[in-house]
């Protein structure tokens, strides 16, 4: 089994691995849904099905010493950054094998080794925290950077605006990555937000911005890389709006009845996995049977991970008392 760091480096070096990681994210999210349906999981979960290219593109562009904040919809970002399926499923199932030993659950993942800061269940909360991680890099004079990944709905909360303003005046090395998946909970974006493109919000903070195809991992990686280069070079923050789509409902309980007919099908034509797979076959990066081979390998990996996690002990009661305060 590869370590999180090895998984991350492989993804950065090899586009085949990026494809495989997207398949891994999707397979794992579907597995999480199955485990929920079987009643094996306590609580709730927010799947990122359809948004795999965002996660993989960001992870491909960021260095392992860069810090990433993301949300409760963070399974994909975490896996892309390198978290292993066992660490993720272990956390979701409350097992000792989880990334924080099973006391966090689906919404609370963390692995400092790969720059995954504790994930946030409060909307918008990770955005200023990423600015703070960038402040550390600036004060210490390293050329690390930070990335905040957050949803479209989060751009209506004060934390978003305060963080952009602060990062702009201090020229902090941070990239704001908005995954515009068209919905915040059960509300379509246009019902809560007066602008069509979130990217335009950068203008009032004098921050450069771009709209990016969030269903294309190459496009995401390129845009994030470019923004990170700017940030490291002292040019300050960038706001990237990645247009994407949430295939599942908001959370476990939501069947998305509010979605207009045909919308999912239209987005599925842009499916990041199908299209990237095709591209890699055309380029010869994947062989003719490459897609099937990757799927088979990933299926086997996820099945093995589920088995390992189900064999791992539930977090012991004493675990809730650990790490409340640092020694």
């Amino acid at each position: 089994m590869s370590t999180p760091l090895e998984r991350r480096l492989a993804l950065q070096q090899d586009r085949r691995v990026r494809y495989e990681r997207m398949v891994e994210i999707r397979t794992l999210e579907n597995k999480v849904q199955d485990l929920f349906d079987e009643g094996l999981v306590h609580g709730t979960t927010h799947l990122c099905l359809g948004q795999e290219a965002v996660a993989v593109g960001v992870a491909a562009a960021a260095r392992t010493t860069d810090q990433v904040t993301c949300t409760y919809r963070g399974h994909g970002v975490a896996l892309a950054l390198g978290l292993t399926p066992v660490q993720l499923l272990g956390e979701i199932l409350g097992r000792e094998a989880g990334s924080i030993g099973g006391i966090g659950g689906s919404m609370h993942l963390c692995d400092p080794e790969i720059g995954l800061m504790p994930t946030f269940a409060i909307v918008g909360a990770g955005i200023p925290v990423a600015a703070g991680a960038a402040l550390t890099a600036q004060v210490r004079g390293t050329d690390d950077a930070a990335i905040a990944v957050f949803g479209d709905g989060s751009t209506n909360i004060g934390a978003f605006h305060e963080a952009l303003n602060l990062a702009a005046i201090w020229k902090l090395p941070v990239v704001f990555v908005c995954e515009n998946n068209q919905y915040g909970e059960y509300s379509r974006i246009d019902l809560t937000t007066p602008v069509d493109d979130i990217a335009c919000r950068a203008e009032s903070y004098d921050i450069p911005s771009a709209i990016v195809d969030g269903q294309d991992p190459d496009a995401v990686a390129e845009a994030v890389s470019g923004a990170l280069d700017q940030a490291r070079g002292g040019a300050g923050p960038t706001l990237l709006e990645l247009k994407t789509y949430r295939y599942a409902g908001h959370s476990r309980a939501d069947t998305a009845p509010y979605r207009p007919e045909g919308e999912f099908e239209r987005w599925y034509e842009k499916d990041p996995i199908v299209n990237f797979g095709r591209r890699l076959v055309d380029e010869g990066v994947l062989g003719d049977n490459g897609v099937e081979e990757v799927e088979a390998a990933v299926d086997a990996r996820i099945d093995a991970a589920v088995e390992l996690v189900l064999a791992s002990a539930p977090a012991p009661v004493a675990a809730m008392f650990a790490n409340v305060l640092a020694p």
Partner: peptide, 12 residues
């Protein structure tokens, strides 16, 4: 107890 609310079913 004086701890954040944990996740695991038995802990909770």
């Amino acid at each position: 107890p004086d701890v954040p609310v944990p996740f695991g079913k038995e802990l909770e």
